[in-house]
C-alpha cells in the first residue's frame, strides 16, 4: 500500500506546485508586461510525477493606450535595462516610468534606467519612436536628453525572473547577453503600456484541472490510510 501513497503524494505535490504557479499568474492579471510561466510535469521512472522545468511564455501581452507621457511599450521583443541597487543589471518590459526626486527616469519600483536619463524640471519632454528623449527650451529650442536603449535576447524565455517584472541573465549561459540593438525607427511606443500576457481562460482551465488532480491525489492518500488502518484492525482479530 505504501507505494500507492508515495505515488499519490508525488501527484499532490506536483499539482500543488501547479496551483501555486497558476495563482501567481492569475494574481498578475493586471500587472503591466507580466509574462506567465508554465510548469512542465514529467512522469517519474520510479512511479508518480515530478515538476521537471518551468518555462516563461514567449507571447507578449497586448498594448493598451494610457496617454501618460512616461508610459512606454516595446512593440518588438526587446527589454529596457535598469540598474539594481547592488550595481547589477536587470531587464524589464514594464514601461510605466516616472521621474524620481533627483530627476532621473525610473521604473515603477524606483530603479533608474540604464543608460540614465535625467528629465529637467518644468520642461516639456517628448519621447520619439526611436527612443530619443528630447526637451524643449523656453524659446522652443530642442535638446536631446538621451536615448532609451532596447536590449534584445536570443532566448528571452530562459531569462531568470527576479520579481517585480524584472529579469536577469542566467549565469554561465552563452548567447543570453543583452545586446543593445541599433537605433530603430519604431523601438518605443509612448503613451501605451504592455498589458499582462496572462490568458485568463487558459489559466482558469489549468486551475480547475490542477485543483481536481490535487484533491484526487489527496483522496487516494486518505483512502489508502483508511485501508491500512482497517488491515491493522483486522489483524488484531
Amino acid at each position: 500500500m505504501l507505494p500507492v501513497m508515495t505515488t499519490a503524494l508525488s501527484g499532490a505535490l506536483a499539482y500543488q506546485a501547479t496551483l501555486d504557479e497558476v495563482a501567481h499568474n492569475l494574481a498578475n492579471l493586471s500587472t503591466p508586461a507580466f509574462r506567465p510561466t508554465r510548469l512542465a510535469l514529467a512522469e517519474a521512472a520510479e512511479g508518480g510525477v515530478i515538476p521537471a522545468a518551468r518555462r516563461l511564455s514567449a507571447r507578449p501581452g497586448p498594448l493598451a493606450e494610457t496617454g501618460a507621457p512616461f508610459d512606454m511599450a516595446l512593440p518588438g521583443p526587446g527589454f529596457f535595462r535598469v540598474r539594481l541597487p547592488d550595481g547589477n543589471y536587470a531587464y524589464t518590459r514594464r514601461g510605466d516610468f516616472r521621474v524620481d526626486g533627483t530627476g532621473r527616469l525610473v521604473t515603477h519600483g524606483g530603479l533608474p534606467l540604464d543608460p540614465e536619463i535625467r528629465i529637467p524640471p518644468d520642461r516639456r519632454v517628448e519621447v520619439r519612436p526611436d527612443g530619443t528623449v528630447v526637451t524643449f527650451g523656453p524659446d522652443g529650442a530642442e535638446a536631446v536628453l538621451g536615448r532609451l536603449e532596447v536590449f534584445t535576447f536570443d532566448r528571452p524565455e530562459n531569462l531568470v525572473p527576479l520579481g517585480g517584472g524584472l529579469f536577469r541573465e542566467p549565469a554561465g549561459e552563452t548567447g543570453l547577453t543583452g545586446l543593445a540593438g541599433p537605433a530603430q525607427p519604431q523601438a518605443v511606443v509612448t503613451g501605451y503600456l504592455e498589458m499582462s500576457a496572462v490568458d485568463l481562460t487558459g489559466e482558469f482551465a489549468r486551475l480547475i484541472q490542477a485543483q481536481r488532480a490535487y484533491v484526487l491525489n489527496l483522496n487516494i492518500i486518505r483512502d489508502q490510510d483508511r485501508l491500512l488502518g482497517e488491515a491493522i484492525e483486522l489483524a488484531r482479530g
Partner: peptide
C-alpha cells in the same frame, strides 16, 4: 493494480 492506477492518476496533468 492500485499502484499502477495511482501512477496513472498522478500523471493526469502530465503532457
Amino acid at each position: 493494480r492500485q499502484e499502477l492506477l495511482a501512477h496513472n492518476l498522478a500523471n493526469i496533468g502530465t503532457p
